[in-house]
């Protein structure tokens, strides 16, 4: 196998240079993209590349874990939170702290140079390869180490995970401090306030758009804010289709006229007019 060799083959070199560029590009995109969701997807790409590199380095188990746990679970958790916070909100990349960007760039470059200089200085010419270590199978080798030499670290890691779970629950859990109001109380309060007695109007237009981010239209054709969830309104994620609706309405009327005209041209007019709205509704 490729990974078992002490020195990498030329095939691995090709793979490294292609995927390495991809990984760096992904990393750069992660920090450059204005939208968090794009950053997350770029990072996921970098991680998959890293998974391939793990495999190439003989860490088969880690490679698979990288794909399953990191890319599959952790990055999805990120995406989930991104969605929760606002998927379309774009960050401003304008720097607000004085000199922060220059410092960051300077320190980043300096630190990188130091690291690379350090690696370059180190005597890293000898590569033993994992041929012997992986002889009994990579997973078996890892398991042997985890359950012998690193068993305490392993147990403590388990405790850490449990603690993290409890911590996350405590952090996000909100205790209800008062009794939930009953439906009756809420309706009474609504009437007392006198603002909106009836249920709020539903979103969507004429059964053509029933998505939650599309406001319903008032009789005069203007969109009604009330029909969309306040969260979406706050985020500015409301799609205004009022203009489009008018155009579509016109096209609809035209089509229905055509249909009616075709219908009237048919012989033996059995069905009365009211059948047409019903047809429309079924559509």
């Amino acid at each position: 196998m490729m990974g078992l060799a002490a020195a990498a083959s030329s095939g691995e070199a090709v793979q490294f240079w292609i995927l390495g560029i991809v990984a760096v590009a992904g990393a750069l995109c992660t920090i450059m993209m204005r939208r968090a969701v794009h950053s997350a997807l770029s990072l996921a790409g970098t991680m998959i590349v890293l998974a391939v590199f793990y495999l190439a380095n003989g860490a088969y188990f880690l490679g698979v874990v990288q794909v399953v746990v990191y890319t599959g679970a952790i990055m999805m958790l990120f995406l989930f939170v991104v969605m929760l916070v606002g998927v379309t909100a774009a960050d401003s990349l304008k720097e607000t702290l004085k000199g922060q960007r220059w410092l960051a760039a300077g320190l980043g470059v300096g630190f990188g140079i130091l690291l690379i200089a350090g690696i370059g200085n180190a005597a890293l010419k000898e590569f033993n390869g994992l041929g012997d270590a992986n002889a009994g199978g990579n997973v078996q080798g890892l398991a042997a180490l985890i359950f012998t030499k690193y068993v305490f670290a392993f147990e403590i890691t388990g405790a850490l995970l449990i603690t993290a779970v409890v911590g996350a629950m405590v952090l996000t859990h909100r205790e209800r401090t008062e009794r939930a109001r009953t439906q009756r109380e809420r309706s009474e309060a609504r009437i007392r306030e006198g603002r909106q007695v009836t249920p709020l109007p539903a979103p969507g237009v004429y059964a053509r758009h029933n998505a939650v981010d599309i406001p319903g239209l008032l009789p005069d054709g203007t969109p009604s804010e009330l029909t969309v969830s306040p969260t979406l309104r706050e985020r500015g994620q409301v799609r205004d289709v009022s203009g489009q609706s008018l155009a579509e309405l016109k096209a609809l009327e035209q089509r229905s006229e055509e249909w009616l005209g075709r219908e009237s041209g048919r012989p033996g007019k059995k069905r009365p007019g009211p059948a047409a709205p019903k047809e429309e509704a079924q559509k």
């Binding site: 922060q100 630190f111 690291l115 200089a117």
Partner: peptide
Amino acid sequence: AVQMLGGAAVLVAATL
């Protein structure tokens, strides 16, 4: 974070 990275850089430089 900038200060931390600066400190880390100093440590790496000192090690080298």
